[in-house]
Amino acid sequence: MGVPWGELAADAPARYTVQRGDTLWGIAARFLQQPWRWPELWGMNLEQIRNPHLIYPGQVLVLTRAGDRARLELAGDEPPLVKLSPRVRAEALDEAIPALPPQVIEPFLADVAVVDPQAHAQAPRLVAGPEQRVLLARGDRAYARGQTGQGATLAGEPLEADRGERRLLDIYRQAQPLRDPQTGELLGYEAQRVGQARLVRPERQELDAQGRPTLEPATVDIVQAREEIRLGDRLLPARMRERQPYIPHAPADEVEGQVVKVHGNAMQMAGQFQVVALNRGREHGLENGHVLALLKNRARVADRTDETRAELLLPGERNGVMMVFRTFERVAYALVLQVTDGVKVGDRFTNP
């Protein structure tokens, strides 16, 4: 196990003390020319990559050599401890260091969901507020429907409690279609969470005194609002925030795809530590921690040295590296870690 000595960074230290604020990728870049080969340097097998030994501030990493290969080890096996008196007690000083800058990826772990077209079309929506208001805030009571139409045209599933319990629902807005840059195929809708609501009473249909069917929407209470909630906002089952270690590693199988979206206000090109959406996901074998190489689009240019102005197709040069940190069925999100030029929609990616 380990990596060839020649794969180490030119100034790789013999020892390094992990600092608060470090990331796994940043530490890997200190030791390796290609930081994504961190698991090889650490001597991890596939199971260890999925359930890695965590690294804590204060621990010392030691670079060892066996023949022509290098390997990284901990100088001690346990997280740094502090002893408190008069009681005998020991506890970890810090949380394990993250693989990626948490402030960059946290919003995508907590507030972004990709839903398939059918789920988006059928998602319940807010239909009324108190005193006919169209803007709602935390603490307001509102009303929602999962169905459409009325009477004979009633369709869809009503918004109901889950096994009699009051359901917690995420409120989403601005669901944007994500389309494959090459085929135009709709991959899903990207929805931004703006708040949460708790279901108080389910949606139901009753008969009035004249025997006519009457629709009663579901009752929800707005329990969280990051911005004003609006009528028409969609409701999806609340989900727990994903927290897991990300260990950079190459996909076992060949992967190719394109960038679907660049994230950021008015962004057309992504730089280092910016997020991009990809047109590949779990069904294509992508998983959290996969490192992918970014390639520039193949540009067509005219040969100005040729009187005929022959059209040339330039090769797609390597442009950088990114790491997948969240996957859906047909879409994944990745963080750009190294880049030469900006990354734009349509740029290709492949194995590193």
Rank of each mutant, 00 (worst) to 15 (best):
Y172D: 07
L159A: 13
T183H: 01
Q192S: 07
P177D: 05
R167Y: 04
G188P: 09
I171D: 10
D180Q: 06
E190C: 15
Y172G: 07
L187A: 05
L199V: 06
L199Q: 12
E160A: 13
Y172W: 13
G195W: 00
E160M: 11
R167H: 02
L178I: 02
G184A: 05
Q182V: 14
Q196G: 15
G156N: 06
L169N: 03
E165M: 09
R193S: 05
A197R: 00
E160C: 05
R198V: 14
Y172K: 03
D170I: 05
G195I: 04
P158G: 00
R179N: 10
R166H: 13
A197E: 00
A155K: 11
A155W: 09
L186I: 01
L178H: 06
Q182R: 15
A161V: 11
R198Q: 14
L159H: 09
Q174M: 12
R179C: 05
L168N: 08
R163G: 04
P158L: 01
R163T: 03
E160P: 01
Q174I: 14
R179W: 03
R166P: 01
P158C: 00
G188Q: 02
R193D: 07
R198P: 09
R167S: 13
R163P: 05
Y189F: 15
T183S: 15
A161Y: 02
L186E: 01
A155C: 07
I171Q: 02
R167Q: 02
A175N: 04
G188W: 08
Y172V: 14
A155F: 03
Q174D: 06
E165R: 12
P158W: 04
P181T: 02
L159F: 03
L169S: 15
R198Y: 01
A155Q: 06
R173I: 02
Q182L: 07
A197H: 02
Y189C: 01
